[in-house]
Amino acid sequence: MVKQGVVPDELTKPFWDAANQGRLEMQNCSACNRLQNPPLPACSQCKSGEHLEWKEMSGRGKIYNYGVVYDCPVKLLQQEQPFNLVVITLDDDPGIQMYSHLPGTPVDEVPVGAAVQVIFEDTANGQKVPEWRVVA
């Protein structure tokens, strides 16, 4: 599934640059030792932006939950309906979630709890985006 192109902005540029280089990075507050996603201008715990950094993740996770999208608001994805839309939690910190279309898994046959591994796919403008596959 080709997603809309992404134009990195100041807040998220490190995330997207890392994706282009095949790495999954998450925002981390070094003062709180706490990851956060989505990225924010400040740590959601200490409220300071001074100690925010980007930290490489293992790229491993679990399937936490999922739904099947039949009526998508995004025009580019409507031709792919119905499709899985899955929430992944990272093994590095199960409190951190990411979305995935879970390529390779049939619609509505999502194994909740299964292990997944990050991959990187091209979006419509060539920007890479993290995606996830079930680990066999």
Binding site: K3, Q4, G5, V6, V7, P8, D9, L11, T12, K13, F15, W16, N37, P38, P39, V69, D71, C72, P73, V74, L76, L77, F83, L85, Y99, S100, H101, T123, A124, N125, V129
Partner: peptide
């Protein structure tokens, strides 16, 4: 055709097409 990087990762209407 394209979306800003922050929007793409936001919890609501994202790159992944959540209704």
């Amino acid at each position: 055709d394209t979306v800003p990087g922050t929007f793409a990762l936001s919890p609501g209407r994202t790159l992944w097409g959540a209704p």
